[in-house]
Computed example of a mutant assay.
Amino acid sequence: MNDPWLSLQHAADHDISLLSAALLVAKDEYPGLACGDYEHRVDDYARRLTQQLPEDADETQRLSRLNSFLFEELGFAGDEHDYFDPRNSYLNEVLDRRLGNPISLAIVQITLAQRLSLPLEGVSFPGHFLVRMPLEGGIVVLDPFHRGRTLDLPELRRRARSELSAREIDDQRLATLLEPASHRAIVTRMLRNLRLGYVQNEAWDKALRCTDRIVTLDPFAVAEFRERGNLYLKLEHHRAARDDFRRYLALAPQAEDAEAVMNLLIASSAKAERLH
């Protein structure tokens, strides 16, 4: 039986469906999840939305109607009460509760935009994930966590300065920060957000699962081997931790934390492997 995660690893980026990949993330937590039912629900949203649009609607009108439909008519919103609730990263829960975090809401928004032939793209902006769409003469940047509102340049600069602890963000740096994210990077960021919530709750096994998926999706994400090694230590899987620390040091011998990771490797080597 083919492993869908390995299929994602080898897929070209444009062949990765954000909706399908996000539901695959959810299937780890909900093994019996009927992903097709949720894909059909989004298809139904797209049909309803298309029926509401005039045939001659331009891109700006279609984008405005999309936001109105998603955030006003359907009531999707950012979960400001419990931002790191894992349910905000599981797309089945997001679609059921109509609550999410910036990246999960962006995935719904981008998926619907694709159905309307709108070139909406994700942006791995510092802090909150955003979306952008090229328009004649520039781009429009939207915040899906706050009901898709448009962000102007001064606010984008303020956000970037705050997250990066920078005095000033010049035009070139801001343009770089607003570059579109690949689909692989978007799914990876979703998994990292999910892991952060599990780490905060000391759910080490689920945090490890997220890291396994990241490593499968992006085997060149070298720092993830260190992260996974640390999680293996939390679960007392010392042999697996040693393997990941060795791999990290082999791939990043000049890393700033190489000495600290070497010390972890030495310490884990002195401990007996956990019995199963």
Rank of each mutant, 00 (worst) to 15 (best):
P126F: 08
N92M: 10
Q109S: 11
R65C: 12
F84I: 04
F84L: 12
H128F: 10
I110P: 05
V108W: 03
A113G: 04
R65T: 14
V123C: 05
E136L: 09
R158K: 15
D152M: 05
V140C: 06
P102R: 01
N101R: 09
V94N: 04
R161D: 04
V131P: 01
R87E: 15
V94S: 02
E72A: 12
A113I: 03
G148W: 03
E93I: 07
V131I: 10
G78C: 08
I107P: 00
H146E: 13
P154Q: 10
E136P: 08
L105Q: 02
N88E: 13
D85F: 09
T150E: 14
L156W: 14
I107Q: 05
E163L: 09
L156R: 13
R132P: 05
Q114N: 15
Q114S: 14
V140W: 02
L120T: 00
P144T: 06
A160K: 12
A106N: 04
R98E: 08
S162E: 15
L95K: 01
F71R: 01
S162A: 14
T111Q: 06
H128R: 15
L120S: 00
R65W: 07
F129A: 00
F125E: 01
E80D: 12
H146V: 11
L99C: 09
A106D: 06
L99S: 01
R147V: 03
A113D: 06
R157M: 09
R115G: 11
R87F: 05
R149P: 00
F69N: 05
L164P: 04
R87G: 15
L112Y: 05
E72Q: 14
P134V: 07
L95R: 00
L164H: 05
R147S: 12
D79R: 04
L116D: 08
I139A: 11
E136M: 08
G100I: 02
R149H: 13
E163F: 05
S68A: 13
R149Y: 10
D79A: 04
P154E: 12
G138P: 01
A106L: 04
R115Q: 14
R87W: 07
S104P: 02
N92I: 07
R98F: 10
E93S: 15
A113N: 03
G78T: 04
A166M: 14
L142I: 08
